[in-house]
Amino acid sequence: MARPELVAADGRPIAPPDPAGSPLAIRGLTVSYGESPAVFSLDATFLPGAMTAIVGPNGAGKSTMLKAALGIVPALSGTVSVYDEPLDRARGRIAYVPQRASVDWDFPARVLDVVLMGLYRELGLLRPLRARHRDRALACLDRVGMAAFADRQIGQLSGGQQQRVFLARALAQGADLYLLDEPFAGVDAATEKAIIAVLKALRDEGRTIVAVHHDLSTVVDYFDRVLLMNVRAIAEGTVADAFTPEALQAAYGGRLETDHVARLSRPADPGHAS
């Protein structure tokens, strides 16, 4: 599957982003769970201070790419750099929010304890937990609207509430780069609104947000940039440049209706609140 050339509205080719200084730059990444690759020779460059959606059909390798970039699953080939450094030297600058379905919610932990786990690099194994750490965790819970649930068992929460708690844990890390695997999957509308508000605020503070995203109808409103992929990279760039009918059809193999694709890639209403 060839990666189409991106062109501007006037027909000029759009150059791929320079990986130098990128919060996350991936080159030649290939991952396989068997004979067929889940991700093949993928290049991607995520720009600082932007919200980027990773979009593609089911089985496109979106979550696999993110996990391989983090070293959670092994790669057959390729390189990953984080702010021009190897992953192992820059892990402290990354916060990761996994898919909610991959978490054991029966683990006996309070909401506050889960958020405090985000401070493990700062606390270490032997340093005592102090009032300032608890206050910081509570402030992160308050930011996602969950401070009142601090003493609740994590397994007693709804799916949307659990997702907010995991976002609060990521906030506690004070990271520069936030990687989220389908943060809106299976959550209610109020939680989705709360999460996107927090992510946009982080973006406005200069942080970088990269999220695997499945709802094509919200890409234009939620994100600045997009990586369309289907095992290989299909298109990468601003939403206006890369989230086009041609790129969507290439990524989804013609499975999307033409009229629907045109509506998805249409610019947001200028009067729509972001």
Rank of each mutant, 00 (worst) to 15 (best):
N230F: 06
A147E: 12
V212W: 14
S274W: 08
D113V: 02
A190V: 14
G56P: 11
R127E: 07
R89F: 01
E182R: 12
F40N: 09
S158K: 09
I234L: 08
M146W: 00
F243W: 12
A2G: 11
R255E: 05
I196S: 14
R132S: 11
L24P: 12
A189W: 12
Y83C: 03
A95K: 10
D269L: 09
H272Q: 14
L125D: 00
P37K: 04
F149R: 14
P57K: 12
E122K: 15
D204Q: 13
F149G: 00
F46V: 10
P19Q: 11
T218G: 01
L125G: 12
L112A: 11
P23V: 08
A211H: 09
P37H: 09
T52V: 01
R100N: 06
Q153W: 02
Q156E: 15
S77A: 12
T258N: 03
G160F: 10
A75Q: 11
V7D: 00
M65V: 06
K200D: 04
V239Q: 02
K193V: 01
T52Q: 12
A15E: 14
L70P: 03
D151P: 09
K200W: 00
Q163H: 09
Y222W: 05
S102D: 15
A137E: 12
E205C: 08
P17Q: 10
R91M: 13
F223L: 01
L248H: 06
D204Y: 06
L70Y: 10
A75N: 05
V103F: 09
P23G: 03
T30N: 04
A201G: 10
G254W: 06
G11C: 08
A75Y: 11
S63G: 02
R130K: 15
R225M: 02
A53V: 07
M1W: 00
D181Q: 11
E236L: 12
M65G: 09
N58E: 02
L171N: 05
E35P: 02
E246W: 09
D18C: 08
R100M: 05
T191S: 15
A150I: 09
R130A: 10
D204S: 14
R93S: 09
L199D: 06
D259F: 00
R232A: 04
V187W: 10
K193N: 13
G254F: 07
R164M: 08
E182D: 12
L264T: 04
N58Q: 10
T30W: 09
G155M: 04
K200V: 07
C140N: 11
M1S: 15
R169F: 01
I195D: 02
P37N: 09
P108S: 08
L177M: 08
T45I: 12
G253C: 02
V210I: 15
R91Q: 13
R136L: 13
P267W: 10
V111G: 01
V219H: 07
A197W: 03
L126T: 14
T218F: 05
